[in-house]
Design a binder for these strands. Structure first.
Lengths: 147, 147
DNA sequence: TAAAACTTGACTAATTCAGTTTAGAATGAA
DNA sequence: TTCATTCTAAACTGAATTAGTCAAGTTTTA
């Protein structure tokens, strides 16, 4: 049940880019230095975030990466799904990437105990991460979903 | 952020063993058949649960596995931790297996945004799974932690 | 005593993780 | 124009994990 290093690095990079929002782009080596991330690995991650539509980039001497949307329009849930896939701890309770379980004897019926339990877990995780905005995240405010 | 097949099979095996609590032990092939789990893999899992103190076993013709404690004294959190390790999505917010992050620039200070966010996630997961008893689980009651 | 059952440990194929390497294409300052 | 700087893209790698499988036991009891 761990998030990958990719997700962690992505979030750390996004903290830097949030601080830079509205200003000139930030270069990968600057992000790598500030957050102590191996630069080649960071590159891969920034590319993924760019292809997912979160970042824009510019090449050349004054180039770099920048947020394409305001930080309050991006949630941690979005970021983590891009890098680690669905939040659900088991395929049959995922809302964004549902997968029927093949072997479970309860599969077709509605009363699968595992599904009951895991749906609760997936909702709890999503409630937090899908309501946690990059703006709150970067500023250190621990905004709770329903507190 | 997925639970492993081991955890899933363990929970499914424990549903069967909960139904059998107080009666003669259940044999691995019977569990494997009812829950459609590869028997050699199931064996490995039952052994792990036994070594963790959740199950007892008896060899020989009338042998099998059985719960060693009443089903209301075992939580899903316990089971999953045995097979998949800590529930926390990142080492530095685990209560049962804390690990300092080595590279995070916030490491020593108390205001790490990642820690803030991930601690919320770990607590939400633990609140559910550590309050979900095997007895509720097997009977299909969706007992919520604070609902 | 032999079949049924658990025990242990080694083995393996496939996938994922965490990066590294290499080669290239765009930009803009000199 | 040229050249250093920056991003782009894809292949590659070593280690670890996952999901099983296999083989060779030991124990129990009908």
């Amino acid at each position: 049940m761990k998030f990958s290093k990719k997700s962690e690095y992505a979030l750390r990079a996004l903290i830097e880019l949030t601080g830079q929002y509205g200003q000139p782009p930030l270069q990968r080596h600057e992000i790598a230095k500030r957050q102590q991330i191996p630069i080649e690995f960071l590159e891969q991650i920034l590319l993924t975030l760019k292809n997912a539509g979160l970042l824009g980039s510019r090449r050349g001497v004054t180039g770099g990466y920048s947020l394409i949307k305001p930080p309050q329009d991006i949630t941690l849930g979005q970021v983590i799904r891009i890098l680690d896939g669905p939040l659900a701890p088991i395929g049959c309770v995922s809302k964004t990437a549902y997968q029927k379980c093949s072997d479970c004897p309860y599969s077709e019926k509605k009363n699968c105990p595992i599904q009951n339990a895991m749906l609760g877990v997936r909702n709890a995780i999503a409630d937090i991460l899908d309501n946690y905005k990059l703006s709150d995240f970067a500023s250190g405010h621990c905004k709770r979903a329903h507190a």
